[in-house]
Simulated scan of single mutants.
Amino acid sequence: MTLPLALLQLVSPALPVGAFSYAEGLEVLVQAGELRDGATLKAWLEAELQFGLLAVEAAALGPMQQAFKTSNMEQLLDLNGWLIAQREAPEIRAQQWQMAGSLLQLLAAMGWPLTEQSQGLKLTGLKLTGLGWTAAWAWAGHCLDLAATDLVEAYLYGWLANQISAAVRLIPLGATEGQCLQLQLVPLISSQANYLISQDPRQMFSSGVGAGLAQLQHGALYSRLFRS
């Protein structure tokens, strides 16, 4: 199977959405001594990939992409609001909106503005405001005509790459070890994508209580490098 080149652009560190400025609670865990090295980081990432809210979001990509294809904006916005509501920390909600806005702005500049007039979307009084990162990613998949499984896989991979990038700057983890860890987790990403593509996100739940608590504590850190 040939990898769609558009996916490389979406997961590129050069994508101007500001992902590099977020750690999503890792900074709290490092300062608390929970994440100390590559082994503890790997265990944390594996748990989030399998049982965290990330998996629920990834499972929602297919239905969101389909909602864009069928112009079912009521379904899209309902699912978007449900996902945003599960983010306890205000910093994470702000991250979702900021990154989504940046991606939508980029896609508009590339020829795919998300507006009722340009796309023929039937909003029926609903507003395309407050879209989160998952919804924006689904819109990118729709615009670039990407297969749902590829989109889910890239979503997980992009999150993993950003987390490892943050960890390299936070704990004694060299760039080489970070890259080795990223490669080790590729099989898990692939298997998760194949599993999540057939799941109903509404029937799933997140076990990422520790991640939520860490994200809530980030704003109270005395010294911090990241925005979440």
Rank of each mutant, 00 (worst) to 15 (best):
P63M: 12
L10R: 04
A14I: 03
L29D: 03
P13I: 01
L7W: 00
D37G: 01
G25W: 06
T40R: 12
L5C: 07
V56R: 06
S12N: 13
L3A: 10
Q66V: 06
A55G: 03
P16N: 08
E46R: 14
S12M: 13
K42V: 04
L35I: 15
A14F: 05
L35T: 02
E24L: 12
L7Q: 00
G18I: 03
G25E: 05
L61H: 04
G38P: 01
T40D: 15
A39C: 02
P4H: 14
G25M: 04
W44Q: 13
Y22W: 11
G62K: 12
G52K: 09
S12G: 11
V17K: 14
F20T: 07
L35E: 02
E24M: 09
L10S: 05
E27T: 06
Q31S: 15
L61Q: 08
L26C: 09
V56N: 04
Q66Y: 07
Q9K: 05
Q50I: 03
A14Q: 15
A43R: 15
P63N: 07
V30R: 14
V17D: 15
Q50G: 02
L54N: 05
P16F: 03
A39M: 13
Q9T: 05
A19C: 11
T40E: 14
A19E: 15
Q65D: 04
P13F: 06
Q31A: 13
L35H: 02
V28I: 10
Q31F: 09
A55R: 13
L61R: 11
P16Y: 12
T40Q: 15
A32D: 01
A55V: 02
F20H: 15
S21F: 06
L10M: 02
W44C: 09
E48K: 11
